[in-house]
Amino acid sequence: MNPIHPMKKRLILTLLAALAGFIPAAPLHAAEELTLYTQRHYEFDEAVHRLFTEKTGITVKVVKAASDELIVRLQEEGANTPADLYLTADGGGLDRAKKAGLLQSFTSEAIKEKVPATLRDPDDQWVALTKRARVLIYSPERVKAGELSTYEDLADPKWRGRLVARSSSNIYNQSLMTTVIEANGAEASEAWAAAVRQNMVRPPQGSDRDQIRAVATGLADVAIANTYYLGLLETSEDQKDRDAAAAVKVFFPNQEGRGAHVNISGAGIVKSSKKAALATQFLEFLLSDEIQSRYAEETFEYPVSETAKWSPIQEKWGKFTADDVAFSVLGDRNAEAVRLFNQAGWE
C-alpha cells in the first residue's frame, strides 16, 4: 500500500512547525540574564536595557503588565517565579509587594548614598527610580492668576463645569486620593471627591494626555495630570500634540502646605531571586547620574538622584515643594481610596 499518505505528511509537517512555537527563542547556553516584572511600558526603558546589556553583557528580559496584576502573578508563581526585579510606576504597588512578602532587602551602600531616605523603603526593600508630580494643567487664557491654589480648592463651586480628570480606576488618581485621605480624613475626602466630580465638565474618560488636550481645545479649564505627559506632548511627532502643549501651563498645587503630590516609579528585588547581586548592579546602573539625567530628558520624569540634571522642559516648569507623605500610605490606603471614589460617584 501507500507508504505515507500525502495528507498525513502535510499534517505531520504542520504539527512539527507548530511545536516549534513552544521552543524558547533564547539560546540554550544563555549568558547571565535578569528578568523584570515591570509596569513601566516606555520605549525609553528598552533603550536603557540595551545600554545595560552593552555595558555588562547581562541580558534583560521583560514582562510588562499592571502593577497589581504582576503582584498576583508573583504570589501565584511563588518560589518558582522567573522574576528577579519588580518595577512599578507607582509607590503604592511597591509597598503592597513588600507587605505581601515578595521583596528582599538590598544592601548596596551606593544606592543608599544616592537616594534620600524618603525615597527608599525603611527596610530597603525597594528604591525609587524616578519621581512624577501629579499637578494641575490649566489654560492661562481662562484661568486667572491666583485662582488655582490647592487640590482641596478644586471642590469649590467656582470650578463647576471647568475640570477634567481621568477614571478613578487609574492608579495615579488612586494614589492622589490616598494622600488627600491622609491629609484630611476619609469623610472630608469623600466629600472632596464628590464635589470635584460634580465640577467636572464631563464624566471621567481617556488618558492623562486626553485631559490635557481637553484643556487645550477649550472644553475645560483645568486638568489633573502628571507633568511628564505634558513633556511628551511637547516633544510629540504630531503637530497637534505640540500645539496642545503650547496652549496650557503647569501649576504645582499646595505649595503653601504639604506640597504637590509626587508619586514614584521604583523597583525592588524579588525575594526568591538568586541573582540579587546582578539585580543590585542593575539598580545602581539605573540610579547612575547618566541614566537619571536621561530619564529627565526622555520620559520627563524627575530624577531621584540629587546630582542628576533636570531637562530644560522641567526647568521651565520650575522648582516645587513635594508632598513628603510616606509611600507606605499609598499602599495602605489604596483600597480605601477606591471605596471612597465608588461612594463619591467618581467613576
Binding site: D68, S169, R202, Q205, V338, E347
Partner: peptide, 16 residues
C-alpha cells in the same frame, strides 16, 4: 469612560 461589569472586576480585584 463607560464602566461596565468587566471594568468592575478589574477595579475591585486590583484596586481594592
Amino acid at each position: 469612560g463607560v464602566p461596565t461589569l468587566t471594568e468592575g472586576v478589574f477595579r475591585t480585584w486590583f484596586g481594592m
